[in-house]
Simulated scan of single mutants.
Amino acid sequence: MKRYAQIIGERVHWIFEADELPPYPNPEDFLDITGREGIEEGYLYNAKSGVFTAPVAPEPTPIKPQPTLEEMQAQTLLNTEYLVSKSELLGGN
């Protein structure tokens, strides 16, 4: 039994085993990987060098922590006090 990989856009899309490659419309999209261990779906394939590499996951974007309810209430109080003080200084009623 042989092991085949379907390569689409330089990426291993599908791996399967068969005695021979079935008559697919694009046989050039398939590669015999019999005896080559460690290749998985999602791996990248360089056709020029014939090398498979594991994809590199991007670093997650850090998420800024949301303020707590107490922090939001404190900020609202400060903003209110600022506006009241400003209004009093400018002669507002």
Rank of each mutant, 00 (worst) to 15 (best):
M1G: 08
K2E: 00
K2Y: 03
K2S: 06
K2F: 01
R3F: 00
R3D: 01
R3P: 01
Y4V: 00
A5W: 12
A5I: 04
Q6K: 13
Q6E: 14
Q6R: 14
Q6I: 06
I7L: 07
I7P: 00
I8L: 14
I8D: 05
G9E: 13
G9A: 10
E10C: 06
R11D: 00
H13C: 06
W14N: 15
I15Q: 02
F16R: 11
E17K: 09
A18T: 00
A18R: 05
D19G: 10
E20L: 12
E20P: 01
L21N: 11
L21I: 13
P22L: 03
Y24M: 05
Y24N: 12
Y24R: 11
P25S: 12
N26P: 03
P27C: 10
P27T: 08
E28Y: 08
E28M: 15
D29N: 15
D29W: 09
D32M: 04
I33H: 04
T34N: 03
G35E: 02
E37D: 12
G38P: 08
G38A: 03
I39P: 02
I39R: 02
E40C: 01
E40P: 01
E40R: 10
E41A: 00
G42V: 01
G42H: 02
G42T: 00
Y43D: 15
L44E: 05
L44H: 12
Y45P: 00
Y45V: 00
Y45K: 01
Y45S: 02
K48D: 15
S49G: 02
S49M: 07
G50W: 01
G50N: 05
V51I: 14
V51M: 09
F52D: 00
F52W: 04
T53A: 09
T53V: 08
A54W: 01
A54E: 11
P55S: 08
P55E: 07
V56M: 06
V56Q: 13
A57Y: 08
A57K: 14
A57C: 03
P58V: 04
P60Q: 06
T61A: 10
T61K: 07
T61D: 10
P62L: 11
P62C: 05
I63R: 12
K64F: 10
K64Q: 12
K64R: 15
P65W: 14
P67S: 05
T68A: 11
T68I: 04
T68L: 03
L69A: 13
E70W: 11
E70N: 09
E70F: 07
E70C: 06
E71M: 08
M72T: 08
M72K: 13
M72A: 10
M72L: 13
Q73V: 10
A74T: 05
A74N: 08
A74I: 01
Q75D: 11
T76G: 04
L77H: 04
L77T: 09
L77S: 07
L78N: 10
L78A: 14
L78H: 03
L78S: 11
N79P: 01
N79H: 08
T80A: 13
T80R: 05
T80P: 03
E81A: 10
E81G: 09
E81C: 09
E81R: 10
E81P: 01
E81H: 09
V84Y: 09
V84C: 04
V84T: 12
V84L: 13
V84K: 12
K86N: 14
E88K: 13
E88C: 07
E88N: 14
L89A: 15
L90T: 12
L90A: 15
L90P: 02
G91N: 07
G92A: 15
G92M: 14
G92T: 07
G92F: 13
N93I: 10
